[in-house]
Amino acid sequence: MKIAFKLNGRSKTVDVPPATLVCDLLRENLGLTGTHVGCDTSQCGACVVLLDGEAVKSCTLIAPALEGKVLTTIEGLAKGDKLHPMQEAFHLNHGLQCGFCTPGMVMTAIDFASHNPAPSEEETRAALEGNICRCTGYQNIVKSVMAGAAAMAAEETAAA
């Protein structure tokens, strides 16, 4: 089945069986292995990508759902050498250790922050509920997301 969508800013057409999971499409067919698979029950959030800006678990999304949409993965966030403010915030606040949950965390955080420019700690923790991290104890992830939200808002203001 042919599916046309926008992937990290570029038009893409793929021809895959309709039951192909988006995480497999990305990892196996398109060589974008930054999107991770950490579970088989849609619990961990390692696979989160942005579909039309909305954070979705790519392990529970099939390829035909991409038709005509805009898909962003962790590989598509930085502009050249310049990190996305949320990526930068994770770096500055030691928001990652082994890095396995990180892509999903960052994508979830970007969607969240785009609606919440100044989230509270409690709101941030609630928003990350679908992403498991086994390394960090979440404290620095929460700190990163709050800082990243502020940085995104500041960037938006500067651009406006």
Partner: peptide
């Protein structure tokens, strides 16, 4: 100092066995 290992993980360039 901030971690040297962060950049690859933050940009999806980690190299895990499954990759």
């Amino acid at each position: 100092p901030l971690r040297k290992e962060d950049l690859r993980f933050l940009t999806g360039r980690g190299n895990y066995v499954a990759d």
